[in-house]
Each structure stands twice: as C-alpha cells, then as structure tokens.
Amino acid sequence: MDMADGATIDDLLALLKLPVDTPKVFTVNDTNEKADYVLNDNDFLKIFPMAMGG
C-alpha cells in the first residue's frame, strides 16, 4: 500500500477503517511493534486481532 511519509500503523488502521479500540498484535518484518510505529518503504506488516472472550 502507498502511505504518506511518517504514516504509522494507527494511520493505516484508520485508512482501512479497522477499529483502534480492540486489542491487536502487530509485527513489522516479524518484529513486534506498537501502533505508533512509523512505517517505512517495503515494511511487511501483519495485524493479529487478540481474542477477547474466555
């Protein structure tokens, strides 16, 4: 995807209209990152929803 320079994972969630108030785990190039991580060219982001139930 093309994003503006300085765009974060949070920005991408907004672009994709994904909720920001549900728990998720993010990995960028297989390293765990927080939602404020600034995305770089060719980053490979994975978004894993965390289940809420028990």
Binding site: P19, D21, T22, P23, A51, M52, G53, G54
Partner: peptide, 22 residues
C-alpha cells in the same frame, strides 16, 4: 500489548472446541 482504550464486545461469538484448544 493493549491499546489505551478497549471497547468490549458482548456477547462474543465462539465455537466451543476453540475454547477447549486454548
């Protein structure tokens, strides 16, 4: 690992066997 604000979903959908796995 969690965002500052969490909106809980209730009731949550679940297949019983999934709870057995976890």
């Amino acid at each position: 690992l969690l965002p500052d604000k969490i909106t809980e979903l209730s009731p949550k959908p679940i297949v019983g066997a999934a709870a057995g796995v976890m």
